[in-house]
Amino acid sequence: MSQFDFQGIIPILVTPFDDEGRIDSDSLKALVEFNVSSGVHGLGIALGSEIFKLTDPERDQVLKLVVETVNGRVPVVMNTSAPGTDIAVTLSRRAQELGADALMIYPMSFMPTGPEAMLDLFDRLDSATSLPIILQDVPQAPISAEAVRRIALHASRTAAIKVETLPTVAQVRTMAEKVAGQLTVIGGAGGSYMIEEYRRGARGTMPFCSQPEDFVAVWDHLVAGDEVAARDRFDSRIMAINRLAAQDGDLFYHVHKRILQRRGVIAGAFVRSPTCRIDAVTLREIDAMLERYF
């Protein structure tokens, strides 16, 4: 996949596990097929994949399986963020070896040193890989629009900025104003504000992978200039689910995996530790939502 403009719907795949917490390869293959057949424009492996809970061999296993199953039909984005430059370079090199089409990286957050650390990392990546890069602006490692502009001017392979710090709508507007013509601005945070972000210059989003057909439909309406139809589809199919998924900690993992299990895409909804505990009220809310929508 040589060309990737980072526009459109690029869902983040969950990692399916069996009841013992082992990677369920068959479910992951089915999940890829489910999303590709829904018309998505790319697929991502990132924080929404519980990637930080995977061992290095498991990261390789997931990426290799996704790339093989996709078989060039859509681009595959691999998150190679790490607390140290050398680790990020090693992970990025390995991602390219295993067939990733792009990298996604957020600033080092354990001992942050500002944009200079990212400039150094991108210099290192220039000699280690040849993949385009999505720079990620996340709450645990926020990055200003001016810093993004500086990195974009310095590192030519920076192709997009994914905005997830709050308030995301205002941040998208600021990013779009600052890096217009240099980077594609895309949204995240479950795609909860994709319509508002689109109006302000975002040209893609990276939601969860449980409702790809709904997000693709909203996207197609936006591109066609029909915001009324986009809003109707979003409000009727996506909004209530995203609101429920955002209520507590990492509840979103549980919600989206249960949706996929209900839809017959993955076999189980196991979430690796650490994870939030679901109280009885929330469990009833999830069950009611599944009954209503699926």
Rank of each mutant, 00 (worst) to 15 (best):
V36S: 11
T174S: 12
A240V: 03
E196W: 04
Y106S: 15
A230I: 13
L47R: 10
P274C: 03
I9F: 02
T205L: 06
V216D: 07
M289P: 02
L183A: 10
A180E: 15
E20R: 15
E116A: 11
A160V: 07
M289N: 04
V77L: 15
H254A: 06
P107D: 09
P83K: 01
V216A: 06
I161D: 02
G39Y: 04
D126W: 03
L153K: 07
D232A: 07
D235W: 04
P212L: 03
N242A: 13
D248H: 03
L251K: 10
G44S: 14
T15E: 01
R231F: 06
R93D: 02
I241H: 05
I161N: 09
R263M: 13
A189M: 11
T129F: 01
G204Q: 01
V32E: 07
Q247H: 04
T158M: 14
M206F: 08
I286N: 06
L135Q: 12
G268F: 13
K162R: 12
R149N: 06
R124H: 03
G181I: 08
Q140D: 15
R200P: 11
I105D: 03
P142G: 13
R233S: 14
G225L: 05
V67D: 08
V66G: 10
D26R: 08
E197K: 07
Q61R: 07
D56A: 14
E116I: 05
D287I: 11
I266C: 04
A288Y: 01
L43H: 04
R173M: 11
A141P: 09
A95D: 06
M194F: 12
S92F: 09
L119Q: 03
S81H: 07
S127F: 05
S27L: 02
R272K: 15
K162E: 12
D24R: 03
P115E: 04
T205E: 09
A95V: 09
L131T: 07
G72C: 07
R59H: 15
Q261I: 02
D26M: 02
A30S: 08
A102Y: 02
L13C: 09
Y106Q: 15
P75M: 13
V62G: 06
R284F: 02
A155P: 10
P16A: 09
D250C: 11
L63N: 08
A152N: 14
R59I: 11
R263V: 01
V66H: 03
I10Q: 07
L65G: 00
